[in-house]
Amino acid sequence: MDAEISLTVDGARHRLTVDTRTTVLDTLRERLGNTSPKKGCDHGQCGACTVLLDGERTLACLALAVAHDGAELITADGLAAEGELHPVQQAFLEQDAYQCGYCTPGQICSAVGMLQEIDRGWPSHVTEDLTAEPELSHDEVAERMSGNLCRCAAYANIVPAVQQAGGRRS
């Protein structure tokens, strides 16, 4: 079955017809030519496909495009508005927070979403006092980014990059 949907991707509006089985990830990559989000596991286990969907970090591989008709998507590609790197992207560069780079667009979108969550005061599994303002500690970043795997194991630099971006932002 086909369905007509509209999606706004990195600021550009698209109308297209998709098979109802198509995920947001496949729509971005195969239909709209945006290969910034990556297909790692395609089962929600690796985080390489992370995008911001209506502002929240989301796994594009577990979202059906038809169910997100009208959604606003931002990929890592779209974070660099007018060629200027987003503070999270800049921090990844400065901290050398990657090796092969395959997971990096997902890591960056996840970090952007996660820093918003910290700003809102959302707790995590490692937050000692659930009602206190969370800090951007190593343990908090590691826990909150645990949905993004890096098989090169660049974690030792990803955590400081996220901390740097978070500190710069506030």
Partner: peptide
């Protein structure tokens, strides 16, 4: 209901909990 907040936060990941 800290038991509920803790259980939710012990499950899945930030992305999955958003969905």
């Amino acid at each position: 209901y800290p038991v509920l907040a803790q259980a939710l936060l012990a499950g899945a990941t930030g992305q999955l909990r958003n969905q």
